[in-house]
Simulated scan of single mutants.
Amino acid sequence: MALPEMDAGVGHSFGLEFDGIQIKSITEISGLKMEQDVIELKENGADGKYVIKKLPGRWKAPEITLTRGLSADTSFDKWIKDSQFGKMGAVRKGGAIIVYDYEGAPLKRYKLTNAWPKSLEIGTMKAGDTSVMTEKLVVTCERLEVE
């Protein structure tokens, strides 16, 4: 019996793409979660026994955290600033998070609908520390789908 074919799903790099702009320097992504509510329907069956049925409910919108090394790129800063000033027409964007393989080819895409930045956090600053400073952008969206 042959073993099932499996791709090495190792994400060597990650990227963010919104409105044709690509940011490939993402080092960590968390919160990619597709979830929906469960509705419990309680009733008596035809034989009179108590039955609980579970039905699919509303989709829950995820909050995705993107981490990258601090750089001169101001795309995160501008996006969060526009959100703070309530320019939601320009801030809500459609795009995708892309996982690349070791050769740089797209391995998987996660489509975000009406995404906008919730917060931006700069990593801890400590004198004499040799670690890379990071910035974390938390993005919320109305829907997350696998393409």
Score class of each variant (00 low, 15 high):
Gly31Glu: 02
Ala2Lys: 14
Lys24Arg: 05
Asp77Phe: 08
His12Gly: 04
Lys108Thr: 09
Glu135Val: 03
Ile52Ala: 07
Ser119Tyr: 04
Leu66Lys: 04
Gly69Arg: 05
Gly95Phe: 11
Gly86Glu: 07
Gly128Asp: 13
His12Ala: 04
Glu5Gly: 04
Met6Ala: 14
Tyr102Ser: 15
Phe18Ala: 09
Glu40Cys: 02
Lys81Met: 13
Asp37Val: 03
Ile23Ser: 03
Asp101Tyr: 08
Gly15Ser: 03
Phe18Asp: 10
Gly123Phe: 02
Ser30Leu: 00
Lys118Tyr: 06
Glu35Cys: 06
Asp82Gly: 07
Asp101Trp: 09
Glu43Tyr: 09
Tyr50His: 10
Phe85Asn: 14
Trp79Met: 08
Arg68Ile: 02
Tyr102Trp: 09
Gly104His: 12
Leu120Thr: 07
Asp47Gly: 05
Gly69Val: 07
Gly9Met: 04
Ser30Trp: 00
Lys126Leu: 07
Glu63Leu: 01
Ser71His: 06
Lys87Phe: 13
Ile29Thr: 02
Ser119Cys: 06
Arg109Ile: 04
Ile52Ser: 05
Asp47Ala: 15
Val99Trp: 01
Lys108Trp: 00
Val10Ala: 13
Arg92Met: 12
Ala115Val: 05
Ser25Gly: 13
Ser131Lys: 15
Met88Tyr: 11
Glu40Arg: 11
Gly20Met: 09
Ala127Arg: 01
Ala72Thr: 11
